[in-house]
C-alpha cells in the first residue's frame, strides 16, 4: 500500500466533488429538506400531526440524506467512469493495487455521507425549531452508528455502481430506492408498523431501517426503537458483506 498514491487519488475525488458541490447538494439535500418542511412545519402547525413528530423526524431525515449521498456519490461517478469512455483507466494504471482505488472511493463516499448528514441537520433544525427534545447522552453510540451508516452507504454505492448499467440506473432508482426510503423507517419508528406484522418483518431486510432506527435510538431515545446493540451488530455485518461484494464487483469491472 502506497500512501502517496492513495492521497493523490483522494485529492482528485475531493477536487471533483468541490467542483460539483452545488449540484451535489441540490441533488441529495433538496428532497429531505422539502420533506422536513412539509411534515415538520405544514403538517404539525396545521395540527394534523403532533409537534412531537418533529423530533422523531430529524434522525430519519439524516439517515436518508447520508444513505443517498453516500450511495449516489460513489455509484454515479463509477457508472460514468466505467462506461465505454473508461475515464477511470488512468487511475487503474496508477502505481497502487487497484483494490485500493475502490477503497479510496468508498472512504471518499463515506466522508461525503457524514458531511451531508451534518449539513442536512442544520437547516432541518432551523426548520423544525430547537425544542426537539434531542438527547446528547449517547453521543458516542450515535457517532459509531453514523460511521457505520456512512460505510454502508458508500459500500452499497460501490456494489450498485459496479453491478448495473447506465441504462438501468433510472429503473433501480424507482424500483429499489423509492420503496427503500418509504419502508426505511425514516418517517416513522419501526414499532409503529406493529399493526402490519408481515410488513414489519419484511422491512427488516432493508438496511435503511437500521440506519434510521439507530440514529433515532441514540439521538431521540424517547421514541420506541430497536436496541442500539442489535443495530450495530447488523450494520457491521451489512457493511462487511457490502465491502467484500463491492470490491469483487469493482475488480471484475476493472480487469478483463
Amino acid at each position: 500500500m502506497n500512501w502517496t498514491t492513495f492521497r493523490a487519488l483522494f485529492a482528485r475525488d475531493l477536487h471533483v466533488a468541490r467542483r460539483n458541490l452545488l449540484t451535489t447538494i441540490l441533488q441529495t439535500m433538496l428532497q429531505p429538506l422539502l420533506f422536513v418542511f412539509v411534515f415538520g412545519q405544514v403538517m404539525t402547525r396545521s395540527g394534523m400531526m403532533p409537534t412531537s413528530y418533529r423530533g422523531m423526524l430529524l434522525p430519519g431525515i439524516m439517515a436518508i440524506a447520508m444513505t443517498m449521498t453516500g450511495m449516489m456519490g460513489v455509484a454515479m461517478p463509477l457508472l460514468a467512469e466505467f462506461q465505454f469512455t473508461r475515464e477511470i483507466e488512468d487511475r487503474l494504471l496508477a502505481p497502487i493495487r487497484s483494490e485500493w482505488l475502490a477503497v479510496e472511493k468508498m472512504v471518499a463516499g463515506a466522508i461525503q455521507a457524514l458531511i451531508s448528514g451534518a449539513i442536512v441537520a442544520l437547516p432541518a433544525r432551523l426548520l423544525l425549531g430547537s425544542d426537539l427534545g434531542l438527547s446528547t447522552e449517547h453521543l458516542g453510540l450515535f457517532a459509531t452508528i453514523a460511521v457505520l451508516v456512512a460505510i454502508f452507504a458508500a459500500a452499497g454505492g460501490m456494489t450498485l455502481g459496479c453491478s448495473v448499467g447506465q441504462t438501468q440506473i433510472g429503473l433501480i432508482f424507482s424500483l429499489v430506492l423509492a420503496p427503500m426510503i418509504m419502508f426505511g423507517c425514516a418517517y416513522y419508528p419501526w414499532a409503529s408498523l406493529a399493526s402490519f406484522p408481515i410488513l414489519q418483518k419484511l422491512v427488516l431486510i432493508n438496511p435503511l431501517v437500521y440506519a434510521s432506527e439507530g440514529l433515532r435510538g441514540t439521538l431521540a431515545p424517547q421514541y420506541p426503537h430497536i436496541s442500539p446493540t442489535i443495530i450495530i451488530a447488523v450494520l457491521v455485518v451489512v457493511d462487511a458483506i457490502l465491502i467484500v461484494t463491492g470490491l469483487n464487483r469493482f475488480q471484475s469491472k476493472a480487469v478483463s
Binding site: 493523490a8 485529492a11 482528485r12 477536487h15 471533483v16 467542483r19 460539483n20 461517478p77 460514468a80 465505454f84 469512455t85 473508461r86 475515464e87 477511470i88 483507466e89 488512468d90 487511475r91
Partner: peptide, 16 residues
C-alpha cells in the same frame, strides 16, 4: 481509445 478524465481540465489531468 482516448480515456481522459472528463471531470478535469487538460492541465489538471497531467498534474493529477
Amino acid at each position: 481509445r482516448p480515456n481522459l478524465d472528463f471531470s478535469l481540465t487538460a492541465r489538471e489531468i497531467l498534474l493529477f
